[in-house]
Design a binder for these strands. Structure first.
Lengths: 305, 305
DNA sequence: GGTAGGCAATAGTGATTCACTATACATCGT
DNA sequence: ACGATGTATAGTGAATCACTATTGCCTACC
């Protein structure tokens, strides 16, 4: 029993004439005749009473035809689903973003994606890189925004932008005098840091290897966020390092804080998109990338593909 | 897209492993692999993300699998319908009976059929032979009970029983003296007859060709029934001829009427079943025949097949 | 960092199925 | 009886299906 057979069946039930039904199905009369006979044999049921005068459907035949119509209808739905799903910009996209990017990127990203792909709702999760990687591999996420380096088997990455680091200090801080801060100087002040698991913490410590050893001068704030740290800096609890997208928008409305760039070579992080090599909706990824690059993230430098 | 393809599809969605899914479908891994690829090409959609680690279903894939399961479910219903419909004794049987048999046969027939085939309800229509023939050919009826001769293209008949005719007269009638009545004598009395269209009318007139010419001696009662004629005979309006199944049960409880057989050669009618040659439920016809023969129709003689 | 093992994809082949043309067969109406 | 109409059957070629054998790829292990 194939779907073609069922199509022949309902055609014959409608036309009540083998020749006409065959014509409607664009096949020869014997083809349809044989197919119907095969169906009857397979089901061990007489579906039609054939006579020279006309073709009559049996009771059981009528019931089976009705069921066949249902089958064909449902099968047609498959094609419709496929057509609707062929557009990579249709259907939800599960996006993961690390904690230190989400709050600064998403407010810009979401409306842009919605504008470019209105029928692609974003399902967003913020988390640590490691967790995002897990979810991505499991298939719980489709695309993630992380900082490089990021190497995982079966995962491909594409750099999107570089983002320089800034030093954030309370207004009136001694370093305010300097236009740029040397990285090594971080070891001299109480440095507020995110908890372990945040890749940004590690990147900051890489900028200033002395900090790791300089006992007591850096304070780790477990379960915290850059925003919390910023408030703490404002209260004079210490200084910190922020990515430019988080730091640069600040001075305007916040006179309690001062932002300074690092001295060259300016430390920075490279932000990238990552997805499974096998992920088929590359068009969706392009939209995400474009939306990120279209977002007004201060201080960032796009990375050519 | 075939139903087999869809079966492979849902198996793979369940197993998430080409080899296991193939095994479950009793085919080789390449077979399933190719089939899935063919489906994806046909639908122009990626249904699964394949990687060495595992097989992930895409969003659109999951929706299509759900739809495929619906299709397979409905297709399975076809087989169930066929299995249920394979029994010729299941499903309603549309039975037609001529007016001059119905009232005497059906009260016996119906319970017997119900006993022999409880899941075969009878849909009964009483009518003239010509109307029954029309309905039978159109397919509005499946089997009819008629008097022979009955010849129609595409229709086969099977004699079931012979039924002698009787003379019915009011009690005290002059002919009461005789044990048997010669057919020719019918022309001598006011003969009450059914209207045109009733085959029994014609058969009675054939018994006594003189009656047709003997003007005024026979009266035609249009739109009447044997029962009405019987009442009229009881009131002395004339005599009539009845089939034995209608006449023989009478004398017991009706002292106003007298029944006499004809002289040999006893006129009779041959009652038969008729159905389309193409009608597939021969088992149902056998049940009807057996039920008729099992009915206590007085005076009738079964006709061997 | 090389290698073995697991897994899906591909190649190549044979069997089955599908659909065609030509024709036979059945029935009905003239 | 014969022609018209309509379905079934025969016979053939093409397409599809499913198989075995093999390749290619990735991962994980040593």
């Amino acid at each position: 029993m194939t779907l073609t057979d069922l199509r022949y069946l309902v055609a014959l039930a409608r036309e009540r004439h083998f020749g006409h039904a065959a014509e409607r199905c664009n096949v020869s009369q014997p083809t349809l005749s044989v197919a119907i006979k095969k169906l009857e044999d397979e089901l061990a049921v007489t579906l039609f009473e054939r006579s020279a005068a006309d073709v009559k459907i049996t009771d059981i035949g009528a019931r089976i035809v009705a069921q066949a119509e249902r089958v064909l209808l449902e099968a047609g739905q498959i094609k419709e689903l496929a057509t609707a799903g062929r557009d990579p910009l249709s259907g939800p996209l599960k996006l993961g973003v690390i904690y230190t990017i989400g709050p600064y990127l998403l407010p810009h990203l979401i409306p842009r994606v919605h504008g470019a792909a209105p029928s692609m709702p974003l399902l967003i999760q913020e988390n640590y890189t490691a967790r995002l990687a897990e979810s991505l591999k499991r298939g719980d996420l489709d695309v993630i925004v992380v900082a490089l380096p990021f190497e995982e088997p079966g995962i491909v990455t594409q750099a999107v932008y570089d983002e320089p680091f800034r030093v954030l200090m309370p207004a009136g801080h001694a370093w305010e005098e300097d236009a740029a801060i040397p990285a090594a100087r971080l070891a001299e002040a109480p440095l507020l840091l995110l908890g372990a698991g945040n890749c940004f913490r590690d990147q900051v410590l890489e900028v200033c290897p002395l900090c790791r050893g300089g006992e007591g001068l850096q304070r780790t704030l477990e379960g915290s966020s850059l925003e919390t740290i910023r408030h703490m800096v404002a209260t004079g609890a210490g200084i910190t390092v922020l990515p430019s997208s988080a730091a640069d928008p600040l001075p305007g409305g916040n006179s309690l804080l001062t932002v300074r760039p690092f001295e060259a070579p300016e430390p920075f992080r490279r932000i990238a998109l990552a997805w499974r090599v096998t992920y088929p909706r590359s068009g969706a990824i392009d939209v995400i990338r474009a939306a990120i690059l279209g977002s007004p993230l201060q201080g960032v430098r796009p990375v050519g593909r």
